[in-house]
Computed example of a mutant assay.
Amino acid sequence: MKWNWEQPDWPDFVYDPAALQPLEREFLLRSGEFIGAFRHIGADQQDILRIELIGDEALKTSEIEGEILNRDSVQSSLRHQFGLGAARPDIPAAERGIAEMMVDLYRGFAAPLGHQTLFAWHRMLLAGDRTIQVIGGYRTHADPMQVVSGPIQQRSVHFEAPPSARVTGEMTHFIDWFNRTAPDGIQPLPALTRASMAHLYFVCIHPFEDGNGRIGRAIAEKSLAQNIGQPSLIALAYTIERKRKNYYAALEHDNKDLEINGWLNYFAGTILRAQITTIGRVDFYVAKARFYERHRDQLNARQSKVIERLFREGVDGFKGGLSADNYITITDTSRATATRDLRDLVEQGALSKTGELRYTRYRLKLC
């Protein structure tokens, strides 16, 4: 017996519930911290931040699968989905589809999971794909569903899913389990335990021809949202993508046995790191709003363009810090003007300066 679904006790996963209790408490504490921080932001600013957080998740969950999407198109589609902007006819199907799925996840987090919800997400994700045989339904092909790597002559099989003939039955059991273990279900599970198990359980079934990873991560986010009673807006895919190899290694390690303590510890830790990232991004957004309150009327057009670019880099900032050459490239101005603009930004307290001569670097001064 090679895979976990071939075990006679499948899908009765084995784990130590006590091992995650400290992490479960930490998750609930940080959830309250995030909710409190988010509520201190004005309604209009909440809309903008919501789109930024959801948009980044949409981009990163796609990037994990090797699909690079256009940020502006995703955010434009999200604004339209939330009623904050007109529909743009030039939005590609992939960007529109992932935005639709993420908004449906956000709005419908509390609803029980069902086949039709998963089929709808699949149609959204793959609306523009012409290579998939079944879109909006479970796979039906007779060939083994495998996760492989390497050249054909030396192909490595990292996982093989249950045959297509078993998928509908497996998914019926999965959906029943997911709804039974919800906070209002008959067998509720703690937040981290349930989300971690749900993701592993789903991807081990691998019910679709494509899109399983993105839908599996959406299920984990739905699970977390149900456990805290509101959309989590958690940077889960954002955090996974940063150490994508670890994610795939953890999945591969735990797809051959029903004992999943290692997976639960890995995924729970990832969720907690995602929470820290999310709270940090909310704090960064609040700092951004305060920054513009202080400096908006003091910036010329060139400075505004550079400051906007720096903020777009996010919490991590401009890699290596902003240099005079960066400033010249972004604004298409002379070195003398760049030097004068940068000196002015430092004097007004918008940027901090480190280093000298060609090693001089500038960073946003947010406090």
Rank of each mutant, 00 (worst) to 15 (best):
N4P: 00
W10D: 03
L20V: 08
L29E: 12
I35W: 03
Q45C: 01
I51Y: 05
K60Y: 03
T61L: 07
N70D: 15
R71K: 15
A87F: 12
D90L: 10
A93P: 02
L105W: 07
H122V: 03
R130M: 01
G136R: 10
Y138T: 12
R139L: 03
H141A: 11
S149I: 03
P151M: 08
I152G: 00
E160Y: 08
N179H: 05
Q187E: 13
P190T: 08
L192F: 04
L192I: 11
R194S: 12
F208C: 10
E209P: 04
D210H: 05
R214S: 04
R217A: 01
R217E: 04
Q226T: 11
I228H: 08
L233I: 02
Y247I: 07
Y248F: 15
N255G: 11
K256W: 07
D257N: 14
L258F: 13
I271G: 03
I271R: 06
R273Q: 15
R273P: 00
T277K: 14
G280D: 13
R296F: 08
L299D: 08
L310M: 15
S323A: 07
S334Q: 05
A338N: 08
A338F: 06
T339W: 05
R340F: 08
Q348C: 09
K353N: 00
Y359M: 11
R361S: 06
C367Y: 14
